[in-house]
Design a protein around this nucleic acid. Structure first.
Length: 443
RNA sequence: GUGGCUAUGGUGUAAUGGUUAGCACGGCAGUCUGUGGAACUGUCAGUGAGGGUUCGAAUCCCUCUAGUCACCCCA
């Protein structure tokens, strides 16, 4: 006899099973209920962005690791610490799970000769990206991004268009325009940025004793990032730090001014944020974030900017570009908090069968109904009427069809109104007409 | 990567270091081979994993795992 006690030596399989039946850290299942939100987001993106003439383009999840090393910058955290790289069976081949979309999109732009298409090339993407970070709420190692890019043109109009499209998309999802805040800044170009960084570094070196250890580190590795330090200790120093806007070259200043002018004329409000810099090396000129304002602290829903050197850096022609990425999980969480109700469609009709003869007919009838575009569900594995009718109730069917021994013999079928409980017996071959009639009445 | 907090069936929870880990929801089945939302009965399923202290551990200690919060970073 088998002992149920935990003390039997037979507990090895149980242990292995536990380990096996667990997602890797930071990974999660998207359950049917959650997928409604992902789907809603993608549908809304499709509707909004295609109306603005963006076209969907999906690069592969795996790319050569060097694409990101070069594109994002090999000394960024994303590449240095967070990228999933893997060696394949091919000698010397290193691939990476994409940590973001832009590098892959730029590769696709060059590889497919999109620089010969009418410029700009406007693309959007939706899918999972991977970063090996310590997970937190709304922050996973596999997470989804919605990505929008406009490649091949340096006009400030395109910066503005990306920001506009991003904002309209969020509003179409259900965000209220006055709870969204756009912060914007310019981080210059190859000409003016080095000058600014020199000024910034010099300034901070004079205040070394007043800044946190992280900032001391940043001063060496990535001075720009010093500006978004949240440590209270650095607050004073930071406030008096030189402002990038005073160091922009004429071209960059004009470009930035133009972007802001267009936003103004569109009536899009924004906040100039001189501390806004971004963590990826490829950004130039305009950088921005779209946040949801919250008493407890703002939540960045999207971030983006211009990257005028990336195409060339990766070996293409000298083509400027601008783009934005949305954090899908964060948006999904917000939609849930906003009590946005989403549901799968319910079957209108439930077919109940009792007995072998009825079961045989039931298969045929189900497909007949579906071909007539009537959504129908059934429990062909069950035999008694009670549990089937219970199920009909649970799935929310408006009508049940009851097909038993007697009905099969008589060539009849019972149609039951699940709300009123009323039922009538009708000839079997009139089902579709009768159902359509009834369903029409309920709509 | 650094630090804090947490961990009991699928879900929500109970158990001064001391019986067989209790309850609710849920799933399945039955009461009930011809009628649902109810009731009752049965049943499924748990101390995250490993080690230690102890006569005895869900409870105390250590390690790991996972979650969560802050930092780092970022969407």
């Amino acid at each position: 006899m088998l002992m149920r006690s935990k003390n039997t030596q037979n507990n090895l399989p149980r242990v292995n099973k536990r380990r096996l039946l667990q997602t890797p850290r930071g990974m999660k299942d998207i359950l049917p209920e959650d997928f409604l939100y992902y789907d809603y987001l993608l549908q809304t993106a499709k509707k909004t962005l295609e109306f603005y003439n963006f076209r969907r383009c999906e690069p592969p999840i795996l790319e050569k690791a060097d694409l990101y090393n070069k594109g994002i910058g090999s000394n960024t955290d994303i590449v240095e610490k967070e990228m999933y790289t893997l060696k394949t069976k091919e000698e010397g081949e290193f691939l990476a799970l994409r940590p973001e979309y832009t590098a892959g999109i730029v590769r696709a732009y060059v590889e497919n000769g999109m620089f010969n298409w009418p410029q700009p090339v406007k693309l959007y993407s939706f899918g999972p990206v991977f970063r090996h970070e310590k997970p937190q709420a709304g922050r996973y190692r596999q997470f989804y991004q919605l990505n929008i890019e406009s490649l091949g043109d340096s006009s400030p109009a395109l910066d503005a268009e990306i920001i506009l499209a991003a904002k309209v998309f969020l509003e179409n999802l259900g965000f209220n325009h006055n709870e969204l805040e756009i912060s914007i800044n310019s981080i210059g170009c190859h000409k003016c940025r080095p000058i600014y960084i020199r000024a910034l570094t010099k300034y901070y070196q004079q205040h070394l004793k007043d800044i946190c250890t992280d900032c001391k580190k940043r001063l060496k590795t990535n001075p720009l990032r010093i500006l978004d330090c949240k440590n209270a200790k650095c607050k004073n120093v930071k406030e008096k730090a030189p402002n990038f806007l005073d160091f922009l070259c004429d071209d960059c200043r004009n470009h930035f001014k133009n972007v802001l002018d267009i936003l103004d004329s569109l009536g899009i409000s924004y906040v100039l944020d001189k501390t806004l810099v971004r963590g990826l090396d490829y950004y130039t000129r305009t950088v921005f974030e779209i946040k949801k304002k919250d008493k407890a602290g703002d939540l960045a829903l999207a971030g983006g900017g211009r990257y005028d050197y990336l195409v060339k850096l990766l070996g293409g022609l000298d083509r400027p570009a601008v783009g934005v990425a949305f954090g899908v999980e964060r948006i999904v969480d917000e939609l849930k908090l906003m009590k946005k109700k989403l549901e799968y469609p319910k079957p209108k009709v439930f077919l109940i069968q009792i007995g072998d003869a009825a079961k045989k007919q039931a298969f045929i009838l189900l497909e007949k109904l579906r071909k007539a575009n009537i959504s129908v569900e059934s429990n062909l594995e069950k035999d008694n009427i009670k549990s089937q009718i219970k199920n009909a109730d649970r799935v929310g069917a408006l009508y049940s069809l009851i097909l038993g021994q007697q009905e099969v013999l008589d060539g009849m079928i019972i149609i039951k109104d699940m709300v009123s409980g009323l039922q009538e017996t009708i000839p079997f071959d009139r089902i579709i007409d009768e159902l359509k009639k009834h369903l029409k009445e309920t709509i």
